[in-house]
Amino acid sequence: MGKLFLALARGMAVLGGIVLGLLVLLTCLSVAGRVLNTALHGETAQSLFPGLAERLLDWGVGPILGDFELVEAGMAFTIFAFLPLCQIAGAHASVDIFTARLPGRARRALEAVIEWVFAAVLVLIAWQLWLGLLAKMRYNETTYLLQFPIWWAYAASLFAAVVAALTGVWVALARLVESVSGRVILHSDTGPEA
């Protein structure tokens, strides 16, 4: 079970990483297109090779339409897809000044309570995101330039948010078992392998 969730969380992180990589490529292409477009309209290009410049411009050499909104939509999915790994690796920022001195049993109980609250919050986020999706669908909201329905981006994010919520519940269950049995199930390993 632990291995399954770790594999799932890593799979989501890779998926998010691939989308992030695509957004990087898209942005670079758009920048290149915009810079080229300016150069082709410039005096140098227009006097040296006007025919080629015109042909390239006619082909549509220029910024990618809607690059900003694609980055926004893709980034939402990416961050939601990054949440499960952060959850399972215990990578959220916290302050361990006082709890480090607690006896082991008390600390594990505290961790279990915190993980249950976190799981509840992640479930809440997924549930409300679903309601948000329904509202975006109902009001036909689209993006500015490409005018694709915003609920598509919500749906992609919802898929990742549901995985994050499931992972949160699993981590909470594991912590509960740990605090009752004293057995270590999850390692808060944030090294390169986690």
Binding site: R10, M12, A13, V14, G16, G17, I18, L20, T78, I79, A81, F82, L83, L85, C86, Q87, A89, A91, H92, A93, T190, P192, E193, A194
Partner: peptide
Amino acid sequence: RLMQAFYATARNSAMIFFI
């Protein structure tokens, strides 16, 4: 190594955005 870069980016990004 690419996967590991993704994992590390994922952990840190998710942590920052959640805060």
